[in-house]
């Protein structure tokens, strides 16, 4: 069993009428089975409203399954006694950088998590220093979060999670509100954490460029996992991705269109280099 495993996971939101009485349900996550290997970089793709954020919130026990089970590091999240272990194992970073920073000074925010789980003071300082270093924000430790760029704020949020020494970080659309440079900054940071510290990364996003280097990709639509595989395997099915309101990087799109027009290119080309190689081989062929 991987670090996060879900079996037949179902989550129903309860709709309420104007007086707050329950009035039917809406299924946000529907019969999801996932198994995420420790140390891997996994991406969950899906359009807005596909259920990907709802699924993410189960990994931190912020939401509990209506039916089915999810285990984090072997612990069933629905059991009360596992709650704090689950939250320490799987840290969570959210979309809006402003709404997840509690401290008024960067280092105090990073220390917030360790304070909550009762880490002794000298150890908190050590962890804060290491976490800020890991995300490259040490020089901003005394700054107010309000003065930072979006990308920097997200890195502080990641440091805040790292300071709790999780084995896994779940990032729920961490780049949706950032500009391209901030986006790159955040993706670089989490890739680095994945490589250098063997932290399992679960990245929820709808930006296709961000998943190219993932080990495994899940695509969600209407609460279900509809596609899964390596980025290469998933992007090879360009037409299917489009039917789920998603997109492919321009290079993949271009090769797919050329292929449709009759050029014998391979499926799921993800990089410019691979594309240029194939075109040149074709071009030089007599």
């Amino acid at each position: 069993m991987g670090i996060i495993k879900a079996s037949k996971l179902i989550y129903d939101y309860i709709k309420r009428d104007e007086d707050g009485n329950p009035d039917g349900t809406r299924r946000a996550v529907d019969q999801v089975d996932i198994d995420i290997e420790a140390g891997s970089f996994v991406a969950i793709l899906g359009h807005n409203g596909s259920g990907k954020s709802t699924l993410a919130k189960h990994m931190n026990a912020l939401l509990l399954p209506t039916e089915g089970t999810i285990w984090v590091s072997g612990k069933d999240t629905s059991l009360d006694e596992n709650l704090w272990d689950v939250r320490r194992t799987a840290g969570m970073v959210f979309q809006n950088p402003d709404n997840q920073i509690i401290g008024t000074v960067v280092e105090e925010d990073v220390g917030f998590g360790p304070e909550n789980i009762g880490v002794p003071t000298p150890e908190i300082w050590k962890r804060v220093e290491q976490s800020l270093e890991a995300v490259g924000m040490t020089m901003y430790r005394h700054h107010s979060p309000n003065k930072l760029s979006g990308g920097q704020k997200q890195r502080v949020a990641i440091a805040g999670v790292m300071a709790m020494r999780p084995r896994c970080i779940v990032l729920d659309e961490p780049t949706a509100m950032l500009d391209p440079n901030g986006r790159k900054e955040v993706i670089r940071t989490i890739r680095e954490l994945n490589r250098a510290e063997q932290i399992t990364v679960i990245l929820i996003t709808h930006y296709m460029e961000e998943v190219i280097e993932a080990d495994h990709v899940y695509v969600m639509d209407d609460g279900r996992i509809v596609m899964e595989g390596t980025p290469h395997e998933v992007f090879a099915r360009t037409e299917e991705l489009k039917s789920y309101r998603l997109d492919v990087p321009q290079v993949t799109e271009l090769s797919w269109q050329l292929k449709k027009a009759g050029l014998p290119l391979s499926d799921g080309i993800l990089t410019i280099d691979a594309f240029v190689d194939e075109i040149m081989t074709l071009y030089k062929k007599p």
């Binding site: 919130k57 912020l62 840290g91 509690i102 220390g111 998590g113 003071t121 300082w125």
Partner: peptide, 19 residues
């Protein structure tokens, strides 16, 4: 939600970074 995700549960058993 962010505070809960970071294990906040009131002042009980909390340590301090800057006592």
């Amino acid at each position: 939600m962010a505070m809960e995700a970071r294990c906040y549960h009131g002042g009980e058993a909390r340590t301090r970074m800057k006592p």
